[in-house]
Design a protein around this nucleic acid. Sequence first.
DNA 1: CGCGTGATTGAAACCCTTCAAGTTTAGTGG
DNA 2: CCACTAAACTTGAAGGGTTTCAATCACGCG
Lengths: 201, 201
Amino acid sequence: MFEESLKDTNFYRYYSEKAGLEDSDFDVLASHIEFRTLEHNQYILRAGEVCRHFLFVDEGLLQFVSLDEKGDEHILQFAPENWLVSDRSSMFFDEPSLYYIKAIEPSRVVFLDPEFFSEASRLRFEFSCFTETSLHRSIYFLQRRIQSLLGMSAKQRYLEFMELYPELLLRVPQWMIAAYLGVTPESLSRVRREIAKGGSF
Amino acid sequence: MFEESLKDTNFYRYYSEKAGLEDSDFDVLASHIEFRTLEHNQYILRAGEVCRHFLFVDEGLLQFVSLDEKGDEHILQFAPENWLVSDRSSMFFDEPSLYYIKAIEPSRVVFLDPEFFSEASRLRFEFSCFTETSLHRSIYFLQRRIQSLLGMSAKQRYLEFMELYPELLLRVPQWMIAAYLGVTPESLSRVRREIAKGGSF
DNA sequence: CGCGTGATTGAAACCCTTCAAGTTTAGTGG
DNA sequence: CCACTAAACTTGAAGGGTTTCAATCACGCG
């Protein structure tokens, strides 16, 4: 029997509601599930290491970043509650990652190894559909992001960000949003002033 | 029995060598395989349509593009011989695509419906591994692309492009490479002059 | 209170775009 | 084979958006 406290987690609610896992499934999968508590700024993955886990954010906020030669951070992804992050490429190809994953809030994260997904897919067909859907959705977002970076100004990209991730505006410092959008904090500040004044056109 | 001519195609060589399909498998899958010849500039998918096929490029060159409000093309992907393109999101979620796919050389393309992949995965375990690998590789490239767009100058992005896709330099007009890199043709021309002169630093 | 971090603002520099010529290249028809 | 044309590429000058660097302001916290 899995512990009663599991039922109070976002992890349990998310995978039982959305992916069709039953209570008994969590027992079977228990050895592939590990909860960990992370401090603010604690790293889970560093460039050069091989990524071994999928990370489900039960509480808190993670970021997936790359560091360029100049030492500047470029944020590829924010991961708030109920998001799954990992460096799929590093894990799948068993190669050193190019990226960093770290907590930017005190967080509770579920470490899931690849067997969690293969086992769960075996147990429930609905689960395998669900993970396939997630995979396609993440490709969709990656493509959209490339499109934005190719064709839109800093202002347009910020407006798009506000629509897509309104919760993050309150939780994330502005300079990190700048690092996500690919502009300097100063530029983002000016963009915001323009939007506040002239309207968003 | 499948036609003898199939054996002369890149399609046959690619999937038999890399994905482990046997001759008999091609017979079984025949109804999901359709060869088509495309003219220069012929469209396979237009924004607003739902994508119904994966496209394997047997000969020629396709591009996967988005069109912004100003009517400018942004190239998300080039697809030369042995590449597979499609709008996975549109196909998987059965929603209108945001993108265009068209031939930029006279091409022979294999139209594969989703059942081709599910059937082939059922037939050969190696095939399902292979497609999963492809999927992860494409995620890898999408992430790398975002990284480049976030952190690199036009010059650096062009140098990277030259390393990654040297064959395309000869086949694709320069203004299309510019549309891939996210700069104007004029800028790319100046970048090239700089590289030719000063060296690539 | 003083300190550090994040946000703002200003001025100069830089990269890239825009627009408007030119030049080169490749393909076509006489 | 040459002349013609259209498309691609180059080049220049002006302008816009972003960055850079430096200074200032605002806020939370020991």
